[in-house]
Simulated assay, not measured.
Amino acid sequence: MGLGGCIILIAVGAILTFATDWHMQGVNLHLVGVILMIVGLIGVTTFSSIYRRRRVMVPPTTAVVEEDRHPHTRDGYSDGYGL
Rank of each mutant, 00 (worst) to 15 (best):
R69I: 13
I38D: 07
L83M: 07
G13L: 04
D68Y: 11
G82M: 03
V56P: 01
T61V: 09
T45W: 08
A14F: 03
T20P: 00
I7R: 09
Y81I: 07
Q25Y: 07
I50E: 14
V56I: 15
G80D: 09
G43V: 02
I38R: 06
W22P: 01
N28A: 04
T17E: 15
T73P: 00
T20N: 07
Y77D: 07
I10N: 03
H23S: 11
S49K: 13
S78Q: 12
V44E: 02
V56D: 10
P71G: 02
F18Q: 02
F18S: 05
G82K: 05
H72N: 13
E66Y: 02
H70Q: 05
V32Y: 01
V34S: 09
R53G: 12
T45K: 08
L3Y: 09
G76P: 00
R54D: 10
T62H: 11
G82Q: 00
M37S: 08
L29T: 04
G76R: 00
G13A: 03
C6V: 02
A14W: 02
G13M: 04
I35N: 03
T45Y: 09
L29Q: 01
R52T: 09
S48G: 00
R74I: 09
L9I: 00
L83A: 12
V56M: 09
V65M: 12
T46Y: 12
G43L: 03
L41Q: 05
H23L: 08
T62W: 06
S78N: 15
Y77C: 08
R74G: 07
